[in-house]
């Protein structure tokens, strides 16, 4: 564990807490893409198949349970909670994400570290996470003004993978034979997808204005 990875995990945890706070405090999920939340639930379920087979550390196990539990809870809340579900922007959140799921799974069948059930699903989860934010970014552009908590949620979600890139550079420099090409390339693509969001987020922060994404 290094400071970059810890910062990345904490930033990821903060993004989940901000989202839970928004939904719990405002009893509303307006501006949140259910499709991105469902993609993230798939990412965690596919990635943490080794949850019960490989014990790495208490930290690792606890964090996996937190990410799986929170993503499923948010999906449940947005689908079935009688108050929250009313504020879901159903007509704006129309990204056909099964194309993404199919493409990532096909890619994982071709490109993986080892051709085993667990490794293929792990690679699938890495590729899927890289594009999971797309429905959310599309929804933000369509829904115009973005409330603060939603903006912060997306910001922290994007920042966490940037910390992971620093972590991979650090590990590449300090650990012999450390290579995680699948994670690195995917992580770069994932962070790049946030580039324009980060730009408009910074502008809104500098001008102390509401976050506005151009339609």
């Amino acid at each position: 564990m290094n400071i970059f990875r810890l910062a990345g995990d904490m930033t990821h945890l903060i993004s989940v807490l901000v989202l839970l706070l928004k939904i719990y405090a405002t009893k509303s999920c307006s501006g949140i893409s259910l499709k991105t939340q469902e993609l993230y639930a798939m990412v965690f379920l596919a990635r943490y198949l080794d949850l019960f087979s490989d014990f790495i550390s208490l930290y690792n196990t606890v964090m996996k349970l937190v990410f799986i539990g929170s993503s499923l809870a948010i999906v449940w809340c947005m689908r079935y909670h009688r108050v929250v579900r009313r504020s879901y922007d159903r007509e704006l959140d129309t990204f056909r994400y099964w194309i993404l799921v199919g493409a990532c799974f096909t890619l994982a069948l071709v490109l993986h570290e080892k051709f085993s059930f667990q490794e293929v699903f792990w690679a699938f989860s890495i590729y899927l996470e890289a594009v999971a934010i797309l429905p959310q970014l599309v929804l933000l552009q369509r829904s115009g003004n973005v409330d603060n908590l939603t903006g912060q949620y997306v910001f922290f979600l994007g920042a966490y993978r940037a910390f992971y890139i620093l972590n991979w550079i650090y590990r590449y420099l300090t650990e012999p034979r450390f290579t995680r090409w699948i994670s690195c390339v995917s992580g770069l693509v994932q962070t790049a997808l946030y580039a324009d969001f980060f730009y408009y987020y910074f502008i809104s922060w500098k001008n102390n204005a509401k976050l506005q994404l151009p339609a």
Binding site: R5, D9, H12, D50, D54, I56, S57, N60, M63, K64, F67, E113, K114, W122, Y164, N167, R180, S183
Partner: peptide
């Protein structure tokens, strides 16, 4: 046996 690259990251 090839060591399974341990997935120690989240």
């Amino acid at each position: 046996q090839e060591i399974k690259t341990q997935k120690d990251e989240l």
